[in-house]
Design a protein around this nucleic acid. Structure first.
Lengths: 197, 197, 197, 197
DNA sequence: CATGAATGAGTATTCATTCAT
DNA sequence: TATGAATGAATACTCATTCAT
């Protein structure tokens, strides 16, 4: 396995870069091969097709994100800190893997066609994990009963993702701490200042 | 002008459908022409290029959204109802124009290259409008001072967009009212149930 | 007729310019129409097709050249001055109508196909006139008997044409007198300096 | 390299044929591929573009002509026989490569645009070689001092080219020897018969 | 295991021509 | 007579994929 992966890593990283810069359709196997410093045939030898290479990337990424999230969640023992951990992990992951996140948003949330099944599994898999947390939160009384759990889950995901992408991609300077604090505060208590008279 | 636009409308609608189904790259001018029931050359006669057709769509759409939002915002006289109106208008717009919203999310928030300038204008234009509202809210004491306005603006936009897309595209059944109420409540007071002891 | 020609002149001149700049294939009817300041349909109304417009140009031009040459030739009464006149007229014509000459050389001497018949008529028509002069010259003893009349005729035509084109198109500065004298001297007595010992 | 060129030769020859028959614009890559018996993609794999394929042809051809001319010129030791050799070589080359010569004349001497630089280099390169010979001839007293060297060079080139093309392309029967003798005699001593009383 | 030359289906774009007004 | 919107056939070029070495 270690041997088999010898060429896989450079391909993987080159592919991530190119896919995130160009999107799936505009990215070319030639460019990926060139950036990986290997021959085009080698990509086909290892991954079989462009689509399959892309899907491997997608899967690998979401697995890492889910694994990281689940691990941190498991380490907390109440629902509030679990949700805090989720926000932290996802924001951190987005900052660490800007390219992947761009790909995730634009190719999974957006198109219908070529990887319906895989995309669907990714999307609903990750969102389900969040929704389950929300449900537990509602059951335990932390979270308002009248909030629709599904909507809340996707709203949370969207809020983190778009905010992160917008900061990480389009703002030259940003304070990671500010973003994290804003998102946490936003999520738990909303924007309204209750102290006012 | 009315005469000149005779063929523009069917092109416009066919293009929106195809672009949203396939994404910019995968969409073909042939298919757009066929669905519009006109000859391919006519698209080029009217729009010059596939890219330009796409850009026209993008611009037209964001203009409609901004116009609708600004109009409703102007009709309210305090910042809270203005923000409520914003959420309502955007959610309504997303429900009315599912296709457009898919395109907006995946082609504007996502890729870097081909329409940088236009995309940037769209993105920052709409987000600026939101951020300005947030700033006013902070100044008037409605919104917590410690929230970063830019992050809050993109978080709000992301929360509405992703939640809407997720419901409208992937759930067969959904209650528009539930989504609207959840998002409003989420935005203003967060998820936490303060009544608990 | 005068009325019919009202729009023909601007078309004619625009067409000459565009055809000479781009060549027949690369020239577009759109550009000709635009430069002529008229609608594209008008060209078709007047000339029927791009090819026909081009052929009209070709014919009109060669007619003018032949007419001018024949007129000057008729005014001389010996074969030597007739040939001198031919050289002068053709050189002058090339200087006056650089664009036309470019078209003539590259579209008539060069391609086989689309106007075979017309091109052939133009080519052999003009060359025949020259050859006839050469034959007369041979009969009268002015021109060496052993020269092949056909070859001499095309050599004369080629010598003037290419020299003229090269000077008029590619040299920023040139002396018309020098060219004319060089060509005349070259034609009649060759390059060799007989005075040398 | 030998392996890399495996497909280059058939492409080269097919391209020469098609370009000379149709001219650059009218020639299609499809037809070249078909005549070469290879796939269209292979042409792009090897040459990058239609224009580049064409330019390669142009360059290769003029190199062969120049090489042949220089070799023969170098073998003679006086300027008269050098010039005789030049005429012979160019006439022979035109007879051997009718197609190439058609292309050369109509695409290099004719249009302004797409290969300005390359065309200019070809044109002025070959003509310079001739002009240098003429200059030497003038310096040595063989050639009349009053002839403009540049004009004489292009006149010589044009005389050979057009005469050759006209014979080789449009006359079914021709005597190569007659053409050669006529051109030589014409060039050195002109058409005038000095023996006459 | 790795390569890269060769392929050909697929696509954006151009432009001469037509025709209703 | 003149127009210009509409057309669709034609064409350069791209790129995922294959396969002989």
């Amino acid at each position: 396995m270690a041997r088999k992966r010898r060429k896989k890593l450079p391909i993987f990283e080159a592919a991530m870069t190119v896919f995130s810069e160009k999107g799936f359709e505009k990215a070319t196997v030639d460019e990926i091969a060139e950036r990986a410093g290997i021959a085009k045939g080698t990509i086909y030898y290892n991954y079989g097709s462009k689509k399959n290479l892309f899907l491997s990337l997608l899967e690998e990424g979401i697995e890492r994100l889910e694994t990281a999230a689940k691990k941190e969640i498991a380490r907390r023992n109440n629902i509030r800190t679990k949700l805090e951990a989720l926000i932290t992990v996802q924001l951190q992951f987005f900052e660490d893997h800007k390219n992947y996140c761009k790909v995730l948003l634009s190719e999974v949330w957006g198109r219908d066609t070529p990887w319906e099944e895989k995309a669907e599994r990714i999307r609903s898999g990750y969102l389900s994990m969040i929704r389950d947390l929300i449900e537990v939160g509602k059951a335990e009384g932390l979270i308002k009963k009248r909030l629709d759990a599904g909507t809340t889950a996707s709203a949370l995901f969207g809020m983190i993702s778009i905010a992160a992408l917008d900061r990480f991609l389009f703002e030259k300077e940003y304070s990671y701490e500010d973003i994290l604090n804003t998102l946490r505060s936003f999520f738990f208590t909303g924007v309204e200042d209750k102290r006012r008279t």
